[in-house]
Simulated assay, not measured.
Amino acid sequence: MHIAYWIVAGLLALFYLYSGAMKVFRSREELRPMMAWVDRMPLSAVRALGAVEVLGAIGLVLPPLTGVAPWLATAAATGFVLLQIGAIAVHLTGEDRQVALNVGLVATAGVTIWLTTV
């Protein structure tokens, strides 16, 4: 299970590190083609969401790697489940209504939670 955790958590962390960095550093115009919802939110909220994603990605990898507070990996994965539930709600209330990626991320984060407890 240890190897499975690193594969799943590593892929999830890479996704959120990339996604979060884009939200932190790119302009609204650069984000719009990929994320139609950015026009409905203040830019500061988009930046904060990106920072949360980057910190969550670090939380999936660093605690188990160092052995210091490994429960933080479970907390980070749980946070990603909650984040994606909110993202699904945002997509469903907007015009884009594409939630397949979000559902996949909920499932992947759920598997990560399960792997931290096994």
Rank of each mutant, 00 (worst) to 15 (best):
M1I: 05
H2G: 14
H2P: 06
A4V: 12
Y5N: 06
W6A: 04
W6E: 06
I7V: 15
I7N: 04
V8I: 15
G10S: 07
G10W: 08
L11I: 13
L14C: 13
F15A: 12
Y16H: 15
Y16Q: 12
Y16G: 00
L17H: 08
L17W: 12
S19Q: 07
G20E: 07
A21C: 06
A21K: 02
M22Q: 13
M22E: 09
K23N: 11
K23G: 04
K23E: 13
V24Q: 09
F25M: 12
R26L: 14
S27I: 09
S27C: 10
E29A: 15
E29W: 05
E30D: 13
R32P: 01
R32M: 14
P33W: 07
M34P: 00
M35W: 09
M35Y: 11
A36L: 11
A36M: 08
W37P: 00
W37V: 07
W37H: 13
V38P: 11
D39C: 07
P42K: 10
P42G: 12
P42T: 09
A45Y: 05
A45N: 06
V46N: 10
V46E: 10
A48L: 15
L49R: 01
G50D: 05
A51F: 08
E53N: 02
V54R: 00
V54M: 13
I58M: 11
I58L: 15
I58V: 14
G59L: 11
L60F: 03
L60V: 08
V61S: 05
V61C: 05
L62S: 01
L62P: 00
L62T: 05
P63D: 09
P63G: 10
P64D: 05
P64L: 04
P64A: 02
L65N: 02
L65W: 14
T66M: 05
G67I: 06
V68T: 09
V68Y: 08
A69G: 00
P70F: 06
W71Y: 09
L72Q: 02
L72F: 10
L72T: 08
L72K: 00
L72G: 01
T74S: 11
T74E: 08
A75E: 00
A76L: 08
A76F: 04
T78N: 02
T78S: 14
T78H: 00
G79Q: 07
V81T: 05
Q84F: 14
Q84W: 06
I85T: 06
G86P: 03
A87Y: 03
A87H: 06
V90L: 14
L92Y: 05
T93K: 14
G94Q: 09
E95C: 06
E95I: 12
D96L: 09
Q98R: 14
A100E: 11
A100Y: 03
A100W: 08
N102S: 14
V103L: 15
V103D: 01
G104K: 01
G104V: 11
G104F: 09
G104A: 10
A107D: 01
A107I: 15
T108K: 00
T108I: 14
A109R: 03
I113W: 02
I113T: 04
I113M: 12
W114I: 07
W114Y: 14
V118Q: 10
